[in-house]
Design a binder for these strands. Structure first.
Length: 466
RNA sequence: GGCGACAUCGCCAAGCGGUAAGGCCGCAGCCUGCAAAGCUGCUAUCCCCGGUUCAAAUCCGGGUGUCGCCUCCA
């Protein structure tokens, strides 16, 4: 397995710290609102990574946190009058629901900041004791970036000198411009606060990931985990800061490899709340099935920017339709072993830093070949069984093609409509039998107008929702 | 101001020095009562200008353009 390490900025062989095991930690969402397409992209990227490693027989442990203490959550509490727990419980459930709809496998470890306070306090206390962190007059605790000689080694962002026109606010009491808050002391009574030895307050953003990783993963004396992932925007400062505080507190590096997924753009611009162009997963799901969205969102390599638009979504759906049409064609049938050459080729593609384009091209090729063979030998059970096994393999590796094919083509059709379609088809077939083609074509036009496409096959007339 | 990414057929998208995968769309054919589906065939020299090399979309230099990070952000 080769992966692209965004710290080394090149593809490197994946050599886990414990042979045959892979520990992955991905920065999860702050739970104050529903998941948007960017969250989906990140989840999907690392879902594919975990699936690929599992297919390569690695024992994968995936951790993904929920940030459930944060300024934005506090703001939501003030706006809605709901409790912190009510808000975060709701959005955590919503997030998991949306990601499952996209076929994302649940993380093995799902820590929350509120459940990691001891680990957070312990790490901050150690940093203070080591003089890597300091407390300012209002009780805030800051990490002293000048104490970490490797600060900057993750993002390669350096220089907080006079030429740096960073927009960071310079708190007068900060020793260095890049120092960041490990702990934010309470300034008033209506805030969410926790007691610690240093002050009453709440954790800063970066510390939770470091503390959670220390708490949940063992690692070795060089690294805590194998792979740390997240969106490209987290590289700096979030991951740089995580790395720094972990390095200083634990004496070893946080992660052996760092991976970052690209953004989702809408009309060529980064999707973000402030631009008002964010797109919720739940809204997309009311129009398109989760698997169709999944198929679309994974179709671009995870490191590239993704330009979301409906036209491309529809063309990628047609690609998925081909897979299900083949599955429909061979159903019902048993299953045997997947074709070795196919299996090997697709695993090789995914092992190359998840080259999804090549993997999907191989799927297309497999579909064409199977159709070709079935054209020649429509009843060959061996072909059918191997094809079914191939599709099952695709489902396991890429999370595609797992549905019952007839239902796939009838998504969103209610029973009454279904009955109507089928009775129209019966009427059409009678007209066809009587060679009254004017009538049969008129009926077909009526069905087409309903958004249904007909296929006359040896097994009878089949229909699909377009 | 600092750091970085990207630019390949109408659209999406592989390619990582050896002579341009795949999908969508389009055209032609087979099949079909006609369609649909399926199958077959057809459609690009890679933003521009230099350079290295027997050989470059792929490496180097210089442009142009688009985007991102440096502030909460997947």
């Amino acid at each position: 397995m080769q992966i692209y390490d965004s710290v080394q900025k090149k593809k490197v062989p994946f050599e886990p710290i414990i042979p045959r095991k892979a520990s992955i930690y991905v920065c999860g969402p702050t739970v104050y609102d529903d998941a948007h397409l960017g969250h989906a992209r990140s989840s999907l990227s690392f879902d594919l990574l975990a699936r690929t490693l599992r297919a390569l027989r690695y024992e994968v442990t995936m951790g993904k946190n929920f940030t459930d203490i944060d300024d934005k959550i506090i703001k939501k509490i003030q706006e809605t009058g709901q409790s912190l727990e009510e808000i975060t419980t709701h959005y955590i459930a919503r997030y998991l629901e949306d990601m499952r709809a996209l076929g994302v496998q649940d993380a093995d470890i799902k820590p929350k900041a509120t459940e990691s306070l001891e680990a957070i306090e312990s790490m901050i206390q150690r940093l203070i004791d080591q003089d890597n962190a300091y407390i300012i007059s209002n009780g805030d605790v800051y990490f002293d970036t000048s104490k970490d000689t490797h600060y900057g080694s993750i993002s390669h962002q350096v220089g907080d000198d006079a030429t740096n026109q960073s927009r960071v606010e310079h708190t007068s009491e900060k020793r260095n411009p890049k120092d960041f808050a490990l702990w934010k002391a309470c300034q008033s009574h209506d805030e969410i606060c926790f007691d610690t030895a240093f002050s009453r307050g709440r954790p800063g953003w970066h510390i939770e990931c470091s503390a959670m990783i220390e708490k949940h993963f063992e690692g070795n004396d060089q690294y805590s985990i194998d792979i740390h992932g997240g969106g490209a925007d987290l590289l700096f400062p979030h991951h740089e800061n995580e790395a720094a505080q972990s390095r200083c507190a634990t004496g070893h590096e946080l992660a052996k490899y760092w991976m970052h997924n690209g953004f989702v753009n809408i009309n060529g611009e980064k999707m973000s709340k402030s631009l008002g162009n964010s797109f919720f997963v739940k809204d997309a799901l009311t129009i398109y099935d989760g698997e169709i969205l999944r198929n679309y969102l994974i179709s671009v390599h995870y490191r590239n920017d993704f330009n979301f638009n409906e036209e491309d979504l529809l063309s990628s759906k047609k690609r998925l339709d081909r897979l299900y049409r083949l599955k429909k064609r061979i159903s019902p049938t048993g299953t045997s072993k997947p074709n070795k050459t196919f299996q090997k080729a697709i695993l090789e593609a995914m092992s190359d830093d998840m080259n999804i384009s090549v993997a999907l091209a191989l799927v297309d090729e497999m579909i064409s070949e199977a159709n070709d063979k079935l054209d020649a030998n429509p009843k060959d059970k061996g072909i059918k069984k191997e094809t079914m096994a191939n599709i099952e393999f695709i489902h396991e590796l890429l999370g595609l093609g797992g549905k019952e094919p007839f239902s796939y083509f009838q998504l969103g059709i209610d029973e009454a409509t279904k009955y109507k379609i089928e009775s129209l088809i019966a009427a059409r077939n009678e007209a066809k039998k009587a060679k009254d083609y004017a009538k049969s074509d008129a009926i077909r036009d009526k069905i087409t107008a309903m958004g249904i496409s007909l296929m006359d096959t040896a097994e009878g007339t089949l229909w699909e929702k377009v």
